[in-house]
Write a protein that binds this DNA or RNA. Structure first.
Lengths: 203, 203, 203, 203
DNA sequence: GATGAATGAGGGTTCATTCAT
DNA sequence: TATGAATGAACCCTCATTCAT
């Protein structure tokens, strides 16, 4: 790979990064290419040299986020201890949400506008949810955890973890964390883990 | 109040309703006055006769939502039973989120864009949170509930309830509820109530 | 019809006139809305207030021309004398081409670019040609005119008459007619009529 | 001539060919360098390496066409038989128009836009027309053909022959000739020759 | 009150061309 | 010789808003 191609990758990367940030903040329709270009540190004409269209860029970034999220599974590796799995999942998901909150934000923006780009993804999500629900149901049947509504149990994990991405600004104000500082991961994670472990009768 | 003034109120109401819906879906920058006028069933010129500016309309609607949300308190009336209070709060909040999801959605839109209109509201929110936290802390001190992080406990209630507004579309797809039907309030409420009661050691 | 509506019609008329002129000169792709607005004596924003899109305006103007041309039939009224019909048709067509050359020019522009807007019109044209061909063939069978290739005979009439619209500038230079003056209708008409009457053995 | 220079000529040829085709279809203003590059099978940057500017390329191609057309004279070689000359001229011109219709199309495009590039060519055309007119007038004076308007007679030959280039698409639709096939040269040539010979009283 | 018309600014995108490599 | 990158201008069109009527 030569220098020119490297630079191309760099610029493309800067554009995608900027796009994720801006789209997450103001959505597809609310984000101008001017805004995107400025955020990426290039001119509008330069931006359009690298992208096909604003919508295509949006789609590309959204697909990237969805793919990244797909890789965080409920059960990881050889785990089969309910407490371990739940704790691990909550902490992994929360970590991702605190480290890269723009992902969740972009996702909720897409949902808010009616999710026209998501049609092809629901089936895959349903399959993942079915997998995880099956595991939970088995644990319940085996008496290894209290009965819960498996799907809602999972959805509530999403709700709690993603809240600290989507509503991060509110969390900061309420918890009095300045914009420069980071939210206290351990504090939030502990409370969240306790919440779901206790629901499952595992703590 | 004469007929003309009545009609004026009606139109204003239609505008606010439409604005809430549209702003909740596509945000301030992403929503055009054309779009707003069409959603309100009037012309663009008529819209501008009734409003001062798009931003003013946005502010008005946002303030309305914030005011409405302020009216749902953690403790209601003379309640002082932890289980009763938690159950009531979760159910009230969830009901509001399922009945009028646009409120939460508008709110998250504002947060996503950095909440420039919210500066004056954080103090009030902090006060409310402090009130509720005080109650919870007292209950803990009195041994009437397990120790929790009071602020995070509340925030997680928000997270879970508002999730069914903000991520409603995803919830529908995962729970297989068609766009015309309603999410199953009792099912969701029961799981949510269990979640927080158990965390508090009250169930 | 009130004054405002009248003005609207006036402006719309001015736009269509300007559009016919400009599209005839530089085609759809080669004509900018700036150019159109200037030719119509309005601003670009004003133009876009009155039209849906440049392409729609183009289509509207093109359809208008096609409709106008459809109304010039080979046989008019109760005519059935070959010499009369041919003479009348050539003169009518030529008159139209000299009076409103932009029509033919717009048409040839559309053909030059591959006529993507004409797909629906060929059937109608074929039908008209078939009608006229039938008349000519009958005359030939009845011995009232010399045998000709009926379709090519008609097409050559089009060729000759429309030439004085499409190639008018060249005709002016060759015939030494200044841009302000008019081409000598009678001179051209007489030569053209002679051409086709003699071919038909009618002069 | 070395290999590099040969390749250069090849590419230049491809560019001119593509330019003729594209300019003939959509005119100077309506044809983009992108379109030209794609049609020539090269990149936009490569195109600009070979040409000075779009307008220069247009001028070059147009001049080429004009030069090529100048070489088809009314009278060819030692001919002096009116029927032979007319027949030959009509057939030669028609052949050129059917074989290379883009030439005529580019020419009419230039005329349609007001022929700003043609100012220097009218004198030469007038001279050619005067020559041919002189021959025709002599034939008439010598009683070797019927009196005609010599200039219009010539112009009508152009009209008829070029029609099958400029309006070829319409001709195909009316004559039911598919885009892949060729128009029937002999059929068209015969009718055209008859048309002008009869006008001259020579058939 | 209500509405057609108008507008200057800005939307996303392509343009012809230049430049560095 | 060739090509990725870059650019300022222009492309078509919509924007939020104002103004007559």
């Amino acid at each position: 790979m030569n220098a020119a191609s490297l630079k191309r990758k760099e610029i493309h990367g800067a554009i995608r990064e900027a796009a994720l940030r801006e789209f997450a903040a103001t959505g597809l329709a609310g984000t101008s290419t001017q805004q995107l270009a400025k955020a990426a540190g290039i001119t509008k004409a330069q931006l359009h040299y690298y992208i096909t269209s604003k919508e295509d860029l949006y789609r590309e970034v959204l697909e990237g986020i969805i793919a990244q999220w797909r890789d965080i599974f409920f059960v990881e590796g050889e785990q089969d201890d309910p407490a371990e799995v739940i704790t691990g999942y909550v902490r992994r998901k929360l970590k991702l949400c605190l480290d890269q909150p723009e992902g969740s934000r972009l996702f909720v923006q897409e949902l808010l506008r009616g999710a026209p780009e998501m049609e092809d993804h629901w089936a895959g999500l349903r399959a993942s949810v079915d997998d995880a629900s099956g595991v939970i149901r088995r644990w319940i049947d085996e008496g290894r955890m209290k009965p819960v509504d498996p799907v809602l149990f999972m959805m509530n994990i999403w709700a709690v973890t993603q809240h600290y991405a989507d509503y991060q600004l509110q969390s900061r104000r309420v918890l009095d964390v300045p914009d420069e500082g980071a939210l206290d991961f351990e504090r939030i994670a502990n409370e969240a883990v306790q919440l779901f472990l206790m629901r499952a009768g595992l703590a």
